[in-house]
């Protein structure tokens, strides 16, 4: 049968920053082709196709419901592949090769991780499951 794609509404203007992204305006409606867990979603809007940040979208049906998975306070072990320096108060800075616990996998690609007593958001694209090669 036909493939039905989820429709999302754009909640804020977004200007593309690299080649395969698309620029969208608030209230544009887009169909989602692929949801990557790094927070970039591939979507189509009229005749445009490209990647946009999941955080700029809300589902057309049920915009008040969170689609995020529940947090797992026991934590899941991951290793950092790439360094990231926090730019906002709720982020955490980590060096490559550090083992951390992921406690909340958010669809926007900024997972909540714990390192000792510190907790903060970190880009999921810089993480790999512990024990696997980056």
């Amino acid at each position: 049968g036909p493939i039905i794609l989820d429709t999302y509404r754009v909640i804020a203007d977004y200007s593309k920053t690299s080649k395969h992204e698309i620029t969208l305006r608030t209230d544009d409606l887009v169909e989602i082709v692929e949801k990557n867990q790094n927070g970039w979603w591939f979507c189509q809007c009229e005749n445009k196709r490209g990647w946009i940040p999941a955080s700029y979208l809300e589902p057309l049906d049920g915009p008040e419901e969170s689609e995020d998975a529940d947090p797992n306070y026991e934590g899941e072990l991951y290793t950092t592949c790439t360094a990231y320096k926090a730019e906002q108060d709720d982020e955490i800075s980590l060096e490559p090769g550090q083992t951390i616990e992921v406690i909340h996998k958010l669809l926007d690609g900024w997972w909540v991780v714990r390192k000792g007593d510190e907790t903060g958001h970190f880009p999921s694209m810089f993480l790999q499951k512990a024990g696997k090669e980056c």
Binding site: I11, A12, T17, S18, H20, E21, V33, E34, N36, N38, G39, W40, F42, W51, P53, A54, S55, Y56, E58, Y84, Q88, D108, G109, W110, H121, P123, M125, F126
Partner: peptide, 22 residues
């Protein structure tokens, strides 16, 4: 075929969205 996603982390949610989450 779908091109690879951008190699940089996506921007954080716009301010409007962050307020909603609090």
């Amino acid at each position: 075929s779908i091109k690879q996603p951008p190699q940089n982390p996506p921007p954080r949610p716009p301010a409007e969205m962050r307020r909603k989450r609090v």
